[in-house]
Design a protein around this nucleic acid. Structure first.
Lengths: 123, 123
DNA sequence: TCCATATTCAACCTCTTGGTTGAATATCTG
DNA sequence: CAGATATTCAACCAAGAGGTTGAATATGGA
């Protein structure tokens, strides 16, 4: 069975699976930054952060604008739409099934109560 | 810099980064299943699917109920709440910044128009 | 024009991931 | 009770991830 997800969802979810990359995203939602600015708070080499940025770029979550030797990076929220849709869909299926179960239990409970009343009356 | 995510978000996002695991989740949102039932549609060994299920279990996305030799698996949507919250937060920051930018451009456009009208009058 | 800064490239390393196979374990059934 | 079924365990393998270091490249500034 082939999982029927668009390749976009694959790359987006993989990109977000790493805490460093999520931290980069969080930083970029607040403001555009240069690579060295983004890397500064992390306890890892500049190149390691640069690699993470490339993963985010390939997923379309980060855009880059070059001005001379400086690369300005900004967040693109569009790929998160698909993540939100996928997550909401699973949650709504789950909630619907829980609701159906509760309804079933509720009906059974009402039936038990009326049966009990009849039983009491006959005793 | 330590990424300030709860460990739960880490394990949930990592669990969802794999298309096979997302397909398992999608299957389980529809109905409870046994391991061999879940594995049937996949082109991989039963054990490979069993490993994926364990990853989902560790993330809290799947619960297991054992009856004799059969393990019944069901979906637990709760960890997705955190994913939804994280995603919505980034999107709302992004949208807020885009809105602020548009407002700025709108103001500049109005200023340009009134300046142009004055220029026309003086010519 | 030389030095500084910004950033990527290349090569390397360790560890993890995602898969396989065959064995082991537990339970069910005729 | 022997064979079937369900599932995990253990060991293995290849590929990739995530990091490092040092070199290379491009641009800016004094």
């Amino acid at each position: 069975m082939e999982a029927t997800h668009p390749p976009q969802l694959d790359s987006t979810m993989m990109a977000l699976a790493d805490p460093t990359r999520r931290a980069i995203i969080q930083s970029l939602t607040l403001k555009e930054s240069r690579v060295t600015e983004l890397a500064a708070p992390f306890d890892m080499s500049l190149n390691a952060v640069s690699k993470h940025i490339r993963v985010l770029e390939r997923a379309g979550l980060v855009r880059r604008r070059r001005v001379g030797r400086e690369h300005f990076l900004s967040f693109n929220g569009e790929p998160l739409d698909e993540v939100a849709q996928w997550v909401d869909r699973q949650r709504s299926f789950w909630t619907a099934r829980l609701d159906a179960l509760e309804e079933l239990l509720h009906q059974e409970s009402e039936e038990d109560q009326s049966t009990n009343r009849k039983g009491e009356a006959s005793q």
